[in-house]
Design a protein around this nucleic acid. Sequence first.
DNA 1: CGAAATTAAATTGTGCACAATGTTTAATGA
DNA 2: TCATTAAACATTGTGCACAATTTAATTTCG
Lengths: 155, 155
Amino acid sequence: MTKPDDTLSLDNQVCFALYAANRAVTARYRPLLADLDLTYPQYLVMLVLWEEGRSGAHTRVSDLGRRLRLDSGTLTPLLKRLEERGLLNRQRISQDERVVTLALTDVGWALQKRARSVPQQLLCGVALQPERLQALRQELRAVLTALEGEAGSSD
Amino acid sequence: MTKPDDTLSLDNQVCFALYAANRAVTARYRPLLADLDLTYPQYLVMLVLWEEGRSGAHTRVSDLGRRLRLDSGTLTPLLKRLEERGLLNRQRISQDERVVTLALTDVGWALQKRARSVPQQLLCGVALQPERLQALRQELRAVLTALEGEAGSSD
DNA sequence: CGAAATTAAATTGTGCACAATGTTTAATGA
DNA sequence: TCATTAAACATTGTGCACAATTTAATTTCG
């Protein structure tokens, strides 16, 4: 049982467990989201827009970026694709021409109804208790906070 | 306190916590791996090769795929880049010309020494207890097992 | 044996992520 | 004022992921 270099063992790495679990979960989402014609990141964007749009607020690209931790290099082309599909409109605001706001179209709002069953469908047939998943979610949020709070930023 | 659609709330989704935490962790790795001239997936590949190559075994592309849950569409170009950098050699075996085996070069093995400090460096200055991370790793592995064992496959 | 099915990689095409840079607009200050 | 700086988004380029297809070699079986 000599283990010359356990520190570099793949199975001991939290990072790989995170990487693999994340891909396995998104793979589960894929067929469900394909019915909605959405990729997983597009789905996350729609979640934010559905959530923030409830109050009639105008979500900015920068708001999305803060929420999802994505920059304009990722968001701009993604949002253009959603706009081309008619799910949302992108518009620069007159008060500050640098800012682009996002407004869901009727088609975009209609999609929310169909998306409502996705979370349940996902867990359907998977042997994972909800309370265990919630505990996992909190642990992951703690990791995120620890990693983001570190690098001198005040978030 | 009316919450019209909590099921689609971003913050309630385990999937997003997983997605965000994974990207935050890989972002932590990035500067460390940049010193080794490796991307994160390339690092994972090297972990497997360092681990399996200890016994002098010849790792196949398909072995890597099983281990990392990646297909040849991802691995082939990645491995070509590592080969171009002189870290490994790719060679079809004579017994079965379909199979490509991977062998680390001296340069590839030498890199292992420099990689040894990476796991420690990563946690350096991060307020996360190791035992908590190990518990998280086990939870993530349970999720992975549950998701992979489901779809009628026998792994 | 020889056609059909299977397997292992490679290829092609799309869509993220992210670094680096560019462009336009707004805010700041000597 | 107007040059400087900063902010918000867009663009470019690289490298994954992954679906779908292709190529080539092996296995299976009639």
